[in-house]
Nucleic acid binder design. Sequence first.
DNA 1: TGAAATGTTGGGGCG
DNA 2: ACGCCCCAACATTTC
Length: 472
Amino acid sequence: MKTALVWFRRDLRLADNPALAAALDAFDRVVPIHIHAPEEEAPWAPGAASRWWLHGSLESLDKDLRERGSALHLARGPTLEALLRLVEELGASAVYWNRLYEPAITRRDREIKRVLGERGVQARSFKATLLFEPWEVQTNQDQPYRVFTPFWRKARTQLQLRPPLPSPKKVPSIGAGSGLQLAALELLPTRNWDEGLHARWSRGEASAAKALSGFVDSSLAEYVDERDRPDLDATSGLSPHLHFGEISPMQIAWELDQRSGRAGHAEHANAAEGFLRQLAWREFSQHLLFHFPDMPERNLNPRFDAFKWADDDVGFIRRWQQGRTGIPMVDAGMRELWVSGTMHNRVRMLVASFLTKNLRQHWHHGQRWFWDTLVDADLANNAQGWQWTAGCGVDASPYFRIFNPVGQGIKFDPQGDYVRRWVAELSDVPAPLIHRPWMDNGLLARCGYPPPMIDLDASRQWALAAYKDLRA
DNA sequence: TGAAATGTTGGGGCG
DNA sequence: ACGCCCCAACATTTC
């Protein structure tokens, strides 16, 4: 009897899982394992919202495995020691896993591969998490890309769709005794702040598939036109599912292609292409992080190191975090984040612009808050997004691009429904005033809503001046 | 994946 | 009919 371990990390699905499929092909017994070792990802160990998601996703995977005659074996790190112990205990001759690309993880996994190899244990990793591995897309001079559009132009020509691997009907396993209980990982909050998360999200592979089909059925056709509208339900909501690998980008790309091909309408194809382009941002972020591993810590554009941030202002940062800035669109976004663990992408850009430009607080503060509160917190996406808005990234928004949260509100939340949904104090304010309630004398006091913590126009001028300094 | 300031154009009111 | 002005709409420039 030949036994393999399949080491689940952020590929918490059974369908389209190349490591699992390959192990099932080649071995008599396959033991699915997950090793809890957050300290190995320091300083970017998963935040609170991510841990909440992980709990549910592991629970779901375990249930799906049990329906197939197996179960998820949980262990605690250090990962290498846990793997060696399990290999020994189970008499396994191989460990299979799907690749991740973050610096701390690639470093660790390379070492694990080396040690397993030395001990005569076959260690194989697979491509599963991305459409393009970071080294697969290169300029004609064999360099990594730094700008999204040329990256995508090149990658698009290389995209080879394939049908997703089917979910195995059975996972022949053996009891891998003495595993940990999920509760022992202590992933869930001790204080009860996760009601909003439960209300918004269903975790696990089946929920991910449902989110995809729901999106494709009801929103894809309008995606290009409506994806910037936080007041509408126009986005896919797939990002946390993707982050934890409950669904693969290939499953999504394949489904999009099937639908647009079948429908045969140009607009369907156009919508599918638009969504694929958004998926490509995720690929691009991973590409950048792989080639520029200090992206989460350091400005990709070193000229920006000289930028004069305002002194850290804990009071400012806290008001931003709590959604008490007095700017309705900013507060709506920050409260949506706190309550539901997510924020509409356009609003992410706008609150980030507000923190880094109007308040001129270092982008690290925003990055860290998002890291802890987003259920889709992803090292590459998060770092790339913050560097983009702050203007210090390689393909960054130019320094003078400062969002006006009032203008953004009027444009993308025209009736104010988004603000009313998240900012209870403003629930009775009519559309013309909703994005600038301070224009009506006495309205703020009646609503119990704070005045703007900062003058938008003056702080804009201030930021422009600071950024101009940098250029000189 | 801006916003505001400035420039240009063209239609309509009006003497 | 014509020129003039106003101004909205759009385009371009600048930060």
